[in-house]
Amino acid sequence: MRQGAAWFALAAAVPLSAAALPSWEAPPAVQAAARSDYIEHCGGCHGVAGSSAPARVPELRGRVGWFLCTTEGRDYLIRLPNVAHAPIDDPEALAALVNYVVFRLGGESAPAGARAFDGAEVAVLRRSPIVRASLLRERARLVADIRRRCPAAPASLADYSG
């Protein structure tokens, strides 16, 4: 994204402590658009702030970042059909939406050093949505794997909701 690249060039000139940086930085306009896209396309079911408990909807708030613990978990976030098929054609904008979910709604849950999504990665992954398998079983399998590899991941990650 040209706008984003320009902003990064600008940001590079400003000395900031790397440790203090969240894993996703973007210009305010991009973040605002990502939040707006999230609310418009996802927030109804998942909740404006990433929680709609006790509805049977996966909790995003403070939790979703753990999926970045494994490559498969990371890919899953884009391969979810409602993400892959979201009516957001621009892969950079879709990447920003998912980054907003992972690094803002997900709070501290993303593993240290987790990389933000970019448009190129999203463009490839959204071409293979999970449409022929059980999402619930796939999610359960991924979470079991995440909990093995990242023992700090909370047991509640396995809950479908709440």
């Binding site: 707006s36 609310i39 418009e40 396309h41 927030g43 109804g44 079911c45 909740g47 929680s51 709609s52 408990a53 006790p54 509805a55 909807v57």
Partner: peptide, 18 residues
């Protein structure tokens, strides 16, 4: 806690609201 989200225009300020 669940809903669906639409987009409407407020004619007083011309903004599109979710």
């Amino acid at each position: 806690p669940t809903s669906w989200v639409g987009t409407c225009i407020n004619p007083d300020d011309g903004r599109a609201y979710l």
